[in-house]
Design a protein around this nucleic acid. Structure first.
Lengths: 212, 212
DNA sequence: GAGCATACCTACTCGTGCGTAGGGTTACGC
DNA sequence: GCGTAACCCTACGCACGAGTAGGTATGCTC
């Protein structure tokens, strides 16, 4: 019988992307464990053995998702924030690119941020990416500091950078839950908090605890 | 035979706390799905049916953990930050109490923050608690603003509060992973970022995006 | 010290979901 | 037009883990 087959035969590269799309979607909704390979396969419009043939086990599939979304995000940011710009300009462009990414790939963000953190085998992978970001931000701050002939202990710098990254992620989460919100506007608000605070620190202002 | 029994008989209230301790520990390590009731029971030094008898199903057990750790945290914060103090003082005391809690109950924090966020049935519960915190912070900022005769759109206020809460959570996470770090010192660093930034905003400073 | 409630156990059932065996069909090179 | 490789399926085995059935021992009350 040469009737039209129920499902088209497609080249591997295309199917793989469809599978990844489905996987990201399902993982983001259900979480790693609660997501079933059957549901992912069904959502991708394909049968389960194909998923195993192309992307491997459930863990490997999840890692593949992490990789795709992660590099997507990193490239978006790296592409926007040229290293030879002044610190505030770099920060602004980085933030804008980042919120743009989250706005465009909400599911991808949810997988990276909400799901991968808790699960033992993947937390490390994520922590690495996060650490790279923190390092970049810390480097930026340090650079700005040195330009003013000032210096701060490395730990403090790292912690401040950590706080900024955390605040940004948190707002990204807020953005992911508010489909109507504007990524650009959110980036501006984040910049307000981050930069006005950071600039104070850079200029040598320090808050000290009261002696009670 | 009246020999010493292998396991002591203990009153319900005590066993329940032991079970909750074990559950929080295991959930924090493995995540909700990967944690098994068998492991929790074993860790609590008790058999599985006892867990079901006292705390109910796995979901109910997890909710019980959430509740215990959540109220513990909320009470620590509420007890420290009296509402009639000036904003910076309140913020400082709240932060100190919060980081104190995280330092003391790292597993509890991990369950609340890392595990409960991704899992569908519990995310709502957590979001509510989080929302209460954001509201408190936003209220604090608003109060400080009005004292200076200024005002900000409610959305902006909420977003700034959200960013502050996010930054704090992020640092808490950092603290949870660095057992040697000092909660008090971490709180100070957070205060630096938060307050110097917030104070700038309160005084009417605004960052605006370049027109490119 | 008889009765009863409470604390506690071993040993099962049964559903769910990962991963695979084994086979069918379409395209493409030669 | 024929072999071969790539694409795709239905249908299963099997392990793991939630939840329970049914029973034992211990302390408390009167």
């Amino acid at each position: 019988m040469s009737t039209v087959p129920a499902f088209k035969r497609l080249p591997r590269a295309v199917r793989e992307q469809q599978m990844l799309d489905a996987a990201v979607k399902v993982f983001s909704r259900r979480g790693f464990h609660a997501a079933s390979m059957d549901e992912i396969a069904e959502d991708a419009g394909i049968s389960k053995p194909m998923v195993y043939a192309y992307l491997g086990t459930k863990e490997e599939l999840f890692v593949a998702c992490l990789h795709r979304e992660g590099t997507r995000m990193m490239q978006a940011i790296a592409g926007a924030a040229a290293p030879d710009l002044p610190a505030d300009e770099r920060l602004w462009r980085g933030l804008r690119a980042f919120f743009g990414f989250v706005g465009a790939y909400r599911d991808g963000w949810a997988v990276l941020y909400r799901q991968a953190r808790g699960e033992q085998p993947f937390a490390g992978e994520l922590a690495t990416m996060r650490a790279r970001l923190v390092e970049v931000v810390a480097g930026m701050l340090d650079h700005a500091l040195r330009a003013e002939g000032r210096e701060i202990a490395a730990v403090d710098l790292e912690v401040v950078a950590y706080a900024l990254v955390g605040a940004t992620e948190s707002l990204a989460d807020w953005l992911a839950d508010h489909p109507d919100a504007d990524p650009e506007k959110t980036a501006t608000r984040m910049m307000n908090v981050a930069w006005l605070g950071a600039a104070q620190l850079l200029h040598g202002a320090t808050w000290r605890p009261p002696v009670d």
